[in-house]
Design a protein around this nucleic acid. Sequence first.
DNA 1: ATGAAAGCGCTAACAG
DNA 2: CTGTTAGCGCTTTCAT
Lengths: 327, 327
Amino acid sequence: MANIQKVAKKAGVSVATVSRVLNNPDVVTLKTRTKVEQAIHELNYEPSALGRNLRTSRSRLLLVLLPSISNPFYTEIINGIEDTAIEEGYNILLCETDSNPERENIYFNMVKNRLAEGIISMDPTVNKKTLTDLAKDYPIVQCSEYDEDGTICYVSIDNELAAYHAVRHLIKLGHEKIALINSDEKFLYARERYRGFQKAMEEFELPIRPEWILNMENVKFEDGQQAMKGLLKQEVRPTAVFAVSDVLAIGALKELNINQIRVPEDIALVGFDKIVFSNMTHPTLTTISQPMYKMGSISANMLINKIKGKAVESVILEHELVIREST
Amino acid sequence: MANIQKVAKKAGVSVATVSRVLNNPDVVTLKTRTKVEQAIHELNYEPSALGRNLRTSRSRLLLVLLPSISNPFYTEIINGIEDTAIEEGYNILLCETDSNPERENIYFNMVKNRLAEGIISMDPTVNKKTLTDLAKDYPIVQCSEYDEDGTICYVSIDNELAAYHAVRHLIKLGHEKIALINSDEKFLYARERYRGFQKAMEEFELPIRPEWILNMENVKFEDGQQAMKGLLKQEVRPTAVFAVSDVLAIGALKELNINQIRVPEDIALVGFDKIVFSNMTHPTLTTISQPMYKMGSISANMLINKIKGKAVESVILEHELVIREST
DNA sequence: ATGAAAGCGCTAACAG
DNA sequence: CTGTTAGCGCTTTCAT
């Protein structure tokens, strides 16, 4: 495989000149440049990023931590991150942790040993302590899920307000018996969305029934289905359900369809995230839309600025209630 | 930042010894090893992968090319690739090409300049010529979509047979008017699945109506919905539809639901891929299941073997017809 | 404008 | 078992 030495030899110049042609072409005379370019072409030379990276001690690689790529919530965010990263000359490594600390560790080590220059964490299940410790020495930002009292910058939305809007929408539609399908409250977003639910219910003086507050361990379709199954078994049924993610809502909708319960006539349903599927269900899902692409691109910019040593500040973005057929 | 030199100095040994406790601990006496380990700990030393990579001229990075991560078809395959890769000490870089040759080129360059050691291509839109050229010099395998007369190894299924099974299933159910929602026939899998459709129809002496063969440019939900819209407009309606991907089928189902057409009573529907969402629709979707995880893990193994210089052979895996509510 | 030379951090052959 | 040393391929000062 051709290296810079061979090119230099073939072109009859020094390796420094070849390097200049590669990185700083205007400081080389047209004549020598042409010579070098021809040698490069003839030898089919490709500069090794390995050598360059060691020399410059940069890898131009960013890590994106997420529990699982199968969650459609992340896809638009990733697109935003990716476009911005590529624009800035970085590549991203999608890191599925599967909520597994060991996996997590592999990726943390990649930044410790310089294989990657920084981390965008979107993983609610990440070990906050480890992440905070790592953030002292390496550039890290958080996207969507963040650490409440942490020192790590983030970009997110106002989850409490968004949930409040969703529930208020149901209340204004005349619903009084409203259930909540939430995820595990060990996650900040789950706690915040619960607070939004609570706030709306209290504001309109509606009772919160503990048996209608469901906390699911995971956020897969089956969990939503399971949750709805639980709700339907109860003596008194709610007339409306707010699920904190579209995936949960779609699972719940499945169970409603199976039982021939009409949506929204018998039970109204609101989701969260506006994933692509949410428009393919029957009926289509009312949901909260987050500016996912923007969240991605902002977090990528934040991280790159941090890498460059610039100061960065956390950002809260706007959400939007998207009213469709399920309410 | 601590490097191997500082550790050696602190421990009072040579850099070689430090390197040994890192890579080959058993050849070092317990006593010196302990000394070195303590120095490593005290200095909070992390070996630089940059230096190691240059020295060993390996990056332990594999590229996975796919048009878009938002297509749920890829998620299980990626899991298979990832698990196998990590097991073998490799990491994977998910590369979205967006069917954009420029993007594609970025990733091809990463392997040319040694940042990555090989490529698993799952991208039907990839430039076959470029890929074949690259495969002469670098380890490359194909997963799912492959090049018919190419020299590049692949793992896939028998698309023609799978499509044949899907259509035969509809025929055995008594259907005679069967439509096909296909993707663009520039893709091999589309041509193969068409052939399977054709074979089944001919075997049972059923006519193939050109107006019931739809070739969609993309394979998003909207394309399936669009296709079904087209079918419903026609004078004579089919009683069954085979869509070559679940995503298309789900879009088609959406349009059927909108028009209150009963599935499977009025129109039966078969998809392809068995994506997670295909079990959440109402009715659930009959589909062809591919061993996606296995495809992923086999292709990763193939690539790693190729990198190691071993000979590898293409593999065709089994598929399965999964009969659910839509037929 | 170009070249010589140092060195990024590591591994591995060789010597002892 | 451990140390010395060369060098992976590149960029970048410092001279010229």
